[in-house]
Nucleic acid binder design. Sequence first.
RNA 1: GGUGACGUGGCCGAGUGGUUAGGCUGGGCUCUGCAAAAGCUCCUACAGCGGUUCGAAUCCGCUCGUCACCUCCA
Length: 500
Amino acid sequence: MALKLYNSLARKKEIFEPIHEGRVGMYVCGPTVYSDVHLGNIRTFVSFDVIYRYLKYLGYKVRYVRNITDVGHLEGDADSNAEDKISQRARLEQLEPMEIVQHYMNGFHSMMHRFNTLDPNIEPRATGHIIEQIKMVQDILDNGFAYIENGSVYFDTLKFQQEKKVYGQLSGRIIEELMTETRTDLKNQSEKRHPSDFAIWIKASPTHLMRWESPWSIGFPGWHLECSVMSTKYLGDKFDIHGGGNDLKFPHHENEIAQNIGACGVAPAKYWLHTNMLLMHGKKMSKSDGNSITPHELFTGDSPHVSKGYSPMALRFFMLQAHYRSTLDISDEALSAAEKGYKKLMETNKVLQNLAATQWASTPTSTDTEIEKLMSETINGMNDDFNTAIAIGKLNELSGYIHKLANKQLAFTEISESVLNKLKAFYATFITDVFGLLSESEHAAQEESTLDGLMQLLITMRQKARAEKDWATSDLIRDALGELKIQVKDGKDGTTWSKG
RNA sequence: GGUGACGUGGCCGAGUGGUUAGGCUGGGCUCUGCAAAAGCUCCUACAGCGGUUCGAAUCCGCUCGUCACCUCCA
């Protein structure tokens, strides 16, 4: 069964056929680093991480590009009075904009690593591509799809639509309706010829911190421009997959397509993938309206929304239990269920890897057939638009066989050695390489407390032995711990211990 | 107001015409010194109304409800 994916552009599932055989170019819109990454972003990047991992699993050579937006993302409406999010933050905190960027970018990276997402192959930053962005603005102007107004440059959506007929194709917007937009809160856009036009170069106000020289003004690039420039710079004018959150479909991605076509006549991506939103209490989790919980609060449990802390891996598993195009509602109950499911899956894998026998079925059995079937159904699930929920369900069905073998409820003579070995490799690969789930070592804090408890127990037992002058037992404990590089220290105020 | 999506059992969440999704929770059984784990098993479904069909959670229509986008957001 071939890989199918849901292409937002076509609004249906399509068979995936890369532009260049064996290779995939994938671009995903990354975060704007003006504040701490929140859980909704994480869901999107975890989703694309699994997509990236699965494409690699299928044998594709993938170039994964995910940008860092460090300029151009405006607070409020895109007229000349609007302020760049990062610039604004820098002013408020009295820091260099690049200090803001560095700080939140570092935080983003460390959070991504806690969720065990793979780094993209290229992580370009908008401020590193100002020259290319200016060139694209010029190309769009040269092609007649933009106009200059008071030092700012605007994309002419009406002209673009008249000539290319594709504006609104991705998002389903109808340009005539955008033209007659009557909402009163959108009326302060006097420099634009049409309400649907958007800025591609913005003249900086005197107080604006981030500014570059250009043929039109000292200013900064529009937000949509960076993705058009950086995706095609690293992946070519036409590449395979462009991804991002659902909420970027319009205007961001629609405008991106317009810019690329406006500049070089080619739509950038063959397949557009959009992840759905993470909800809390049935509503979109969103920083701006306070309906959100930070990853840190989830880890520690320090939030009225949860009864306890959840590990990054439990959260990752929670996200994988739903399909990436479905909304996912976060709740304490659901997280708790996911945590248990995650632990069980990891434990099952451990049990599986430890299975060993001396006698096997000599000919293929019905168990072999069932197991082979479940493995291929796992793959089919993933091939059906990366349906991780199905894949997890199938792995769980396989777990029945694994535990029965472990408990001797199913004899090893009912299974072929080759099938079990295949299952071992398959299970481990899926959990680790495709789903990106780490084992318990991720729960470092929990292990710490377990170790602590064990040590207290040993010390108590040793003290009992010492009280009874049972020096053999006492020394056995101390020496054995020494072998494990744990030092036992008998002081005046009792016994302490240390590692290493 | 425009556009789109969704409504599945106690909870989460797959599933687009006929077959058990799966996880968590609850009941029963097996195993077990006790407990845990594990296995087996049971219970509660497809928002409502109508239509198409031999047959619908799945297709069509209507009603009700929820959400998203249209403005920064993954």
